[in-house]
Amino acid sequence: MAESERPFLAQNVDQGAIAKQLSLLSQSASTRAREYEVFNKMNAAQQHQQYRERVQNFFKFVAQYMNTRGLVLPPFISGLNTPPYDPNGSPFAWLEPGSHMSTVKVADRDVDLFKLWQLVWSGGTSQKVRNLFIFTS
């Protein structure tokens, strides 16, 4: 094969330059991987913060709704104590606090009330209950 017929890369190849470029590409890839890892950690922290805000807003809404009905949620559920909760006259007195905020003990296991609500809502049961109330009203 004549010199002019050889592929372009095969002509006058500087092995040192190729090794340097490959090294730089490898460093760039590892830098991107670290940046991606940091981004994912930041994103996870941000998502967790947004989730906690959703939980707090949900229980704030539920507590306000129950207050309009003359019922005060226990502070271990809502995180709020306004108006003050009186366990002696409350229909919620039988609830046992779970190990975390907005959880209750059922059969010695923690039940996260927000996750329970999400499951009921996503399963369409809330629509069935809403239809039942409309039908019986």
Rank of each mutant, 00 (worst) to 15 (best):
Y65S: 08
D14P: 05
N88I: 12
T103K: 03
N67K: 05
I77M: 03
R6V: 15
Q118K: 15
G16A: 10
A10P: 04
A44Q: 12
R54T: 03
Y51G: 05
Q64G: 06
A45K: 08
L95N: 00
Q49C: 06
S78M: 01
F59S: 00
K60Y: 09
Y36S: 15
L132H: 12
P83W: 00
D112E: 06
A17F: 06
L24E: 14
E3S: 14
K128Y: 01
L116Y: 11
V111K: 00
A63L: 00
Y65L: 04
Q11G: 08
R109C: 05
R34Y: 08
E5Y: 06
Q49I: 12
G70E: 03
K41D: 14
A19L: 08
Q46E: 14
F133L: 11
N40M: 14
D14I: 04
V13K: 13
L95S: 01
I77Y: 00
S28V: 03
E3L: 15
E3I: 14
S126H: 14
E96L: 13
P91R: 04
V129D: 01
I77L: 08
G98P: 00
V129W: 07
M1S: 15
Q27C: 05
R52H: 11
L9C: 11
N81L: 01
V62T: 06
K41F: 02
Q49V: 08
A10G: 09
M1L: 12
H48R: 14
G79Q: 02
G123A: 12
S122H: 12
T136R: 14
Q56R: 15
N12M: 10
R32Y: 13
W94L: 11
F133Y: 09
P7L: 15
E5W: 02
F133E: 06
A107R: 15
A17I: 00
S23R: 07
Q27H: 05
S78K: 00
A2M: 09
P84F: 06
A45H: 13
V38A: 09
A45R: 13
S78H: 03
A44T: 11
K115R: 13
G124H: 05
V38D: 07
T82G: 03
P84C: 05
P74Y: 05
I77A: 04
K41T: 07
N40T: 12
K41G: 02
V55M: 03
S126N: 14
F61D: 08
Y65M: 05
M1T: 14
V111A: 03
G79M: 01
L116K: 11
A10I: 10
Q21V: 04
P83L: 02
G89H: 02
D110Y: 09
Q47R: 14
R109P: 05
G79N: 05
S30E: 11
Q21C: 06
F135P: 02
N57A: 15
L25G: 07
F76L: 00
F114G: 01
V111F: 02
V129M: 07
V62F: 07
F133H: 08
F76R: 04
F92R: 01
P97C: 09
D14T: 03
A10E: 12
I134M: 10
Y85G: 05
Y51V: 03
H100K: 15
Q15W: 11
R34Q: 13
S30K: 12
